[in-house]
Simulated scan of single mutants.
Amino acid sequence: MFRDYAEQWMRGQTFDESTRESVEYRVRKHLYPMLGDRPLSKINPGLIRDWDRSLYDVLSASTRSVVFAHLRAILGAAVDDEKIVKNPCTARSVRQPRH
């Protein structure tokens, strides 16, 4: 599940304490509601676009961009760890929110 992998990813990061707290908060608040209980293999570009669209009126573009960067990093690590084949955040049809 995405949540399990994201928790593992966060434990492995060398953030300072305040950065760790803000990353954990953003991941839990903005990624887990839609992605937390999904298998990594079921997260595709369409779901990423839907997730971003769901936050369009909720978060500023700069906050959406930061949360997207966390998602891209988590899924990039999942590719490196051979949990998934491709990072759906890097698909041509997916664009990082601009701030």
Rank of each mutant, 00 (worst) to 15 (best):
D4E: 04
A6M: 00
E7I: 10
Q8V: 10
Q8L: 08
W9T: 09
W9Q: 03
R11F: 12
G12K: 00
T14K: 14
F15L: 08
F15M: 07
D16P: 08
D16A: 13
T19A: 02
R20P: 06
R20C: 05
R20E: 11
E21V: 14
E21W: 14
S22E: 09
S22Y: 10
S22R: 13
V23G: 07
V23S: 05
Y25E: 13
Y25G: 10
R26A: 06
R26L: 07
V27Y: 04
V27L: 01
V27A: 05
V27Q: 02
R28H: 10
R28E: 10
R28I: 13
R28V: 12
K29W: 09
L31G: 00
L31F: 00
Y32D: 06
P33A: 00
M34T: 04
L35S: 03
L35H: 08
G36L: 02
G36V: 00
D37F: 09
D37A: 11
R38N: 05
L40N: 05
L40F: 08
L40P: 03
I43A: 01
P45E: 04
P45H: 03
P45N: 03
I48L: 05
I48Y: 05
R49A: 11
R49Q: 11
D50Q: 14
D50C: 12
W51R: 09
W51P: 00
D52M: 13
D52V: 12
D52W: 15
S54G: 08
S54T: 03
Y56V: 14
Y56D: 15
Y56A: 14
Y56G: 08
D57R: 10
D57L: 09
D57S: 12
V58P: 07
V58A: 08
L59A: 01
L59E: 04
A61K: 01
S62K: 06
V66R: 13
V66C: 15
V67I: 01
V67D: 02
H70R: 07
R72V: 04
L75E: 05
G76M: 01
A77K: 15
A77I: 12
D81P: 00
E82L: 14
K83G: 14
K83C: 10
V85Q: 11
V85I: 11
K86I: 14
N87V: 02
P88H: 02
P88L: 03
C89S: 07
C89D: 10
T90W: 08
